[in-house]
């Protein structure tokens, strides 16, 4: 009697590509209040910048403050650009650190990791899904800054064709295409950090530790990047191209920095992805 039941309960063979877990991962990520709090905080950056500049526009202090700040009063479209420049060094890496650091450690901390693995999710598959979730968050976070900036800029300042760094002028649709490209550039910039966060997350079941370590690494890399004595190291830092998106604002677009950045980030993904796999595939799940 018991022996035959094994065959009758055989699970569906083939099955889907397993995309349902990606959907589930995204749903879980965006059903957390924490995720929306971070997105809200990111949206606040362009809002704050735009409002402050609008309120004090008469006594504008030219030459000081973040890049593009002085262009805002002439063209609201620059709000996005200014906000990105402000968010990239600290705020974006902080939120990426929270999401990437939480990937595995968060599940371990809740204990849900063991149920995902027993389901079975498959360890490699779970890592890939977790990374995909973190990568999506990078894009959403960046896009939040860009879109909020564009909206607030349009509301508070005059909007019109934009003069690019190379002197050429593009219309509003062309400018938005550039902004989207910019969001893509920044997203790619953050993928290396996400991979580092994923790896750190496999080391611990204390998510806060993994989050803090990831965010701290982003700051440390930028500090090292600011020391001229370490010039030989700079091209290898994952933060090296973070602010190098100016090339996308030329006509025609210069793709070198985009390609260099993508290659560098890919290297970080490969190395830390492999480390995460090496650690996680054999790890005893005791939480």
């Amino acid at each position: 009697m018991p022996a035959e039941s094994a065959a009758t309960h055989a699970p569906r063979t083939g099955g889907s590509l397993g995309l349902t877990l990606v959907v589930s991962e995204v749903a879980v990520l965006f059903r957390r209040l924490r995720t929306w709090a971070m997105i809200g905080a990111l949206a606040l950056i362009p809002i704050l910048i735009a409002v402050v500049v609008r309120v004090s526009s008469d006594e504008s202090s030219s030459g000081r403050g973040p890049a593009f700040l002085n262009s805002i009063t002439q063209n609201g479209l620059f709000v996005s650009l200014t906000a990105l420049t402000v968010a990239i060094p600290l705020f974006l890496p902080l939120t990426i650190g929270v999401v990437a650091g939480d990937t595995i450690a968060g599940e371990a901390n809740l204990g849900t990791l063991r149920y995902l693995l027993v389901a079975p999710a498959g360890r490699i598959r779970l890592l890939l899904v977790k990374y995909a979730g973190a990568a999506l968050f990078c894009f959403v976070a960046t896009l939040t800054v860009v879109v909020t900036g564009a909206v607030v800029g349009a509301l508070l300042f005059p909007v019109g064709p934009v003069t690019l760094l190379s002197g050429a002028t593009v219309g509003i649709p062309g400018y938005f295409a550039r902004l989207l490209l910019l969001a893509l550039y920044v997203t790619v910039s953050l993928l290396g950090l996400s991979a580092i966060g994923l790896f750190i997350s496999t080391l611990t079941s204390v998510p806060v530790g993994a989050m803090a370590a990831t965010a701290a690494l982003a700051v440390i890399a930028q500090i090292l990047g600011a020391l001229p004595q370490l010039e030989w190291l700079h091209p290898w830092l994952f933060t090296h191209h973070w602010l190098g998106f100016a090339d996308l604002l030329r006509e025609p677009i210069v793709w070198t920095s985009f390609a260099d950045n993508a290659l560098l980030q890919f290297g970080y993904i490969a190395v830390f992805g492999a480390l995460a796999y090496g650690r996680f595939s054999t790890k005893d799940i005791l939480s």
């Binding site: 063979t13 099955g15 589930s24 389901a119």
Partner: peptide, 12 residues
């Protein structure tokens, strides 16, 4: 639903 989705062979 989350735990069920974790197994790729379950039927959505």
């Amino acid at each position: 639903q989350r735990f069920d989705a974790a197994d790729r062979r379950t039927d959505p």
